[in-house]
Amino acid sequence: MRGLTDEEPTAARGVYQAAITAVAVIAALGLFVAACATGGTGARDEGPAHSDSVAGAVASPAPNPSDTYQQVDAVALVRSDPRVSTAVKRYLKPCAGDEYPVDVSYGDLTGGPVEDIVVNVLTCADAVGVGSYVYREEGGAYENVFKAEESPVYAEIDRGDLMVTKQVYDKGDPVSSPSGENVYTYSWTAGRFVQEDYHHTDYSNAVGGDPSPVPSG
């Protein structure tokens, strides 16, 4: 009986110690899971805060091209323009189907609120320029701020300047083979286009080297 009595406390102590060990393991596991969950949440919380600080460093969004570009009906614009000669308006007829003999380009020439419009009216048969115009938006309407109707002529935008090319024909030259060209460069100054440069190219001398510019007089 004594032996049995001595073994009972020992067994009881073993069971008690095992229970304590189990509780300790469970508690440790719970702390580990909680620590992982807390760490994960912390990482996610820091992400947006970092993004916000980067976004706050950006001064302004990149300009949207659609804010300054407005497509227009160039044919209707030229037809309704009183500054365009009647002779040029006669060419505003479809060449084939609904295709009109006009070339249209958009760009910043005058520093206006929206992009300026350069319109070239051509012939259907030979695509020779008969009129070139620049339109600038002012007060919700487009105003003609430049015109050149000395055919053959063609205008285009060159690095923010207006470049106007006029073909030169000697007597007997076919339309497809001019003898040379005059190129005029204009910049927008004090509310109007001012000629800044001029040069002449003689095609007959082009093979031998760069021709010498002809003074504008």
Rank of each mutant, 00 (worst) to 15 (best):
V104P: 06
P65M: 01
Y69R: 01
C95R: 10
V78A: 05
L77I: 04
P101E: 08
S66W: 04
Y91K: 14
V104C: 03
Y69V: 00
V84G: 01
Q70C: 06
A96L: 15
V75P: 00
A74I: 00
V102N: 06
G107M: 00
P94R: 13
P82H: 09
L92E: 10
Q71N: 09
S66L: 06
Y69P: 04
Y91T: 10
P94M: 14
P65N: 00
D73N: 07
D103A: 03
A87S: 11
R79Y: 04
Y100A: 09
V78T: 08
D98M: 11
R83Q: 13
D98I: 12
V102F: 01
S105C: 06
T86A: 06
A96C: 09
A74E: 05
G97D: 08
A74M: 07
Y69S: 01
V72L: 02
R90E: 11
S105L: 02
G97H: 06
G107N: 05
A74G: 03
P101K: 06
D73Y: 00
V84C: 14
V104Q: 02
T86Q: 10
V88W: 03
T86P: 01
V78H: 02
V84D: 02
V88L: 11
Y91W: 08
V75E: 02
Y100R: 07
A74N: 02
D73I: 08
R83I: 10
L92W: 10
T86L: 13
V78M: 11
A74S: 08
D73W: 01
R79W: 05
D73K: 07
V88A: 14
G107A: 11
Y91N: 13
V78Q: 06
A87H: 09
Q70V: 07
Q70M: 06
Y106L: 02
A87G: 08
Q71P: 02
V72Y: 03
S85R: 11
D81A: 09
V88G: 01
V84F: 02
S85M: 07
R79A: 13
L92K: 13
V84L: 08
V75F: 07
Y100N: 06
D98H: 15
D98V: 15
C95A: 13
P65A: 03
S80I: 09
V78E: 04
R90T: 12
V75M: 04
V104W: 00
S80G: 10
P101N: 12
Y106E: 01
G97V: 12
V102W: 01
Y100W: 10
A87Q: 12
Y100M: 14
D98W: 14
G107E: 01
P82D: 09
G97F: 09
V75L: 05
E99D: 15
Y100G: 03
K93G: 14
D98F: 14
A76I: 04
R83T: 13
S80Q: 11
P82Y: 12
